[in-house]
Amino acid sequence: EESVKIVRLVKNKEPLGATIRRDEHSGAVVVARIMRGGAADRSGLVHVGDELREVNGIAVLHKRPDEISQILAQSQGSITLKIIPATQE
């Protein structure tokens, strides 16, 4: 059973501070990098390897990473992410 986590981040004009990529094996959209000091890093709630399912209620599974980045870039104020946390080894 996948544990889905709802994360709310507050982002002003600054970038979210995370990059995403598509996992070639599973097809999932995952967090590739977290930039120090960005909104994602400061929240402490988003981690490399987390699978991104939704951004502000928009399912991202069938979107290209550049489309998802665009949605994230255009979002201001509160951003709600639905993520499946990376499995902690």
Rank of each mutant, 00 (worst) to 15 (best):
V31F: 15
L45Y: 05
H25Y: 10
R21M: 12
L16S: 02
L52D: 00
D41F: 08
M35L: 14
I84G: 05
E54T: 04
G44I: 00
E24W: 10
H25F: 10
I20Q: 00
H25G: 12
V30R: 13
S75C: 13
S69K: 12
K5H: 10
K11N: 14
E51D: 01
A28F: 02
L45V: 14
G57A: 03
R53L: 15
K82D: 02
L45K: 11
E54H: 02
V30Q: 08
R22V: 14
G37R: 03
G38Q: 07
V46F: 08
K5R: 08
K11V: 15
V4Q: 13
S69T: 13
Q88E: 10
V60D: 02
S75E: 12
E51N: 03
M35Q: 14
Q88C: 11
E51G: 02
G37K: 05
T87V: 12
H25S: 14
T19L: 12
Q70W: 09
I71T: 07
A39H: 11
G27L: 02
V60I: 10
A59Y: 04
D50C: 00
T80Y: 08
K63Y: 08
I84S: 08
L16A: 05
E89V: 11
R8H: 14
S43R: 03
G49H: 04
L16E: 03
A18W: 15
H47M: 06
L72D: 03
R53C: 11
L81C: 05
V4F: 06
I20R: 00
P65N: 11
E67C: 04
S78C: 13
T80F: 07
Q76L: 10
T80D: 10
G57H: 05
E51H: 05
I20S: 01
V55R: 01
R22L: 12
D41N: 04
H47F: 05
R64M: 11
H62F: 05
R42V: 08
K11Q: 09
L45H: 08
D41V: 02
Q76W: 07
S78N: 12
K82S: 09
I68V: 11
K82A: 09
L16F: 15
H62D: 15
V4M: 15
G77P: 07
K11F: 13
D41M: 06
G44S: 05
I79S: 04
L52H: 00
A86W: 07
A39P: 11
L16W: 14
I79A: 07
A39I: 13
S75M: 13
V31K: 00
R53Y: 06
H25L: 12
V29S: 07
V46Y: 02
R64N: 15
V30A: 04
V55Q: 00
D50W: 00
I34A: 02
L9F: 10
R36K: 15
G37C: 03
N12F: 13
N56S: 02
K13H: 14
V48D: 05
V30S: 07
S78D: 14
E54F: 02
L9N: 06
I83S: 04
V30L: 11
A32S: 13
A59D: 15
Q70I: 06
V31D: 02
I34Y: 00
R33Y: 09
L52A: 00
D50E: 01
V4L: 08
G27V: 00
D50H: 01
A28E: 06
S69I: 09
I83D: 04
V7D: 09
K11E: 07
V46T: 00
D41K: 04
E51P: 00
D41Q: 08
K11A: 15
I71G: 04
H47C: 07
V31Q: 02
I6F: 10
L9P: 04
L61G: 14
K5V: 15
A59K: 14
I84E: 05
I34P: 01
R42G: 03
A86L: 08
M35D: 15
G44Y: 00
